[in-house]
């Protein structure tokens, strides 16, 4: 699957875009905004950069929940937009599309990431996991089960993001302290205010995962 990527499609996820640059290209969409096809990182800023029109499409292969999807995207499209609108994976939610709320949280190579602040082209060559990917068929995964048990949701709109945040936390920190849990979900707003139940669910999820 991963072999389907062009070797020269280097992702700059680690280097990252500046927030400001991202906003210019995606924000309220000034016409003629350009985005670099390969999202050169700051480290390679001196090298000549290929620019293409905002409206032009490039082909990417995205590895989502174990399946590779090849599709034409505009370079400025966010990973969130592509997951939801092009792949129909609406588990990741849009709450701000500006990196402020965490409703769009997914895992990229096992680490939590705001899908709204990640370009689809950036995500090529990386393993993307969405909430749909935590399921085993129709069965809930351990973090999801813990959320049900502790009623760690109200409206549920932030919930997929919270679940992914806890999933990401437990992959690096299998037995987190309360403070680690609070830090771990601190990038995910819950306006219904269910945090205390989320903390309990995270503790329970750690238990379930340890088996």
């Amino acid at each position: 699957m991963a072999s389907s990527h062009d070797s020269d499609h280097k992702c700059a996820c680690a280097g990252g875009l500046s927030r400001r640059g991202f906003l210019t290209s995606v924000g309220t969409g000034a016409i003629g905004a350009v985005a670099t096809a390969h999202m050169a990182s700051a480290a390679t800023a001196d090298a000549p950069v290929e620019t293409i029109d905002a409206g032009a499409h490039v082909t990417v292969a995205l590895l989502v929940n174990g399946t590779t999807h090849r599709l034409a995207v505009e370079p400025r499209w966010s990973l969130l937009f592509v997951l939801r609108e092009r792949l129909g994976l609406t588990g990741a939610k849009a709450g701000c599309e500006r990196g402020e709320c965490g409703a769009c949280t997914v895992l990229v190579d096992g680490e939590t990431r705001y899908a709204c602040m990640t370009l689809a082209v950036e995500a090529e060559g990386h393993e993307i996991t969405t909430i749909e990917g935590l399921m085993h068929g129709e069965e809930l995964g351990p973090v999801q089960r813990a959320f049900v048990e502790h009623d760690a949701m109200q409206c549920g709109y932030c919930t997929p993001g919270q679940v992914m945040a806890v999933e990401g936390l437990l992959r690096t920190t299998p037995s987190p302290t309360l403070d680690q849990i609070r830090e771990g979900v601190s990038g995910n707003l819950c306006r219904c205010g269910t945090y205390a139940h989320i903390f309990q669910a995270a503790e329970r999820a750690a238990e379930l995962k340890r088996g």
Partner: peptide
């Protein structure tokens, strides 16, 4: 809640 499944599964 009876719709917890839908809410946590996406």
């Amino acid at each position: 809640r009876i719709d917890a499944y839908e809410r946590v599964s996406g």
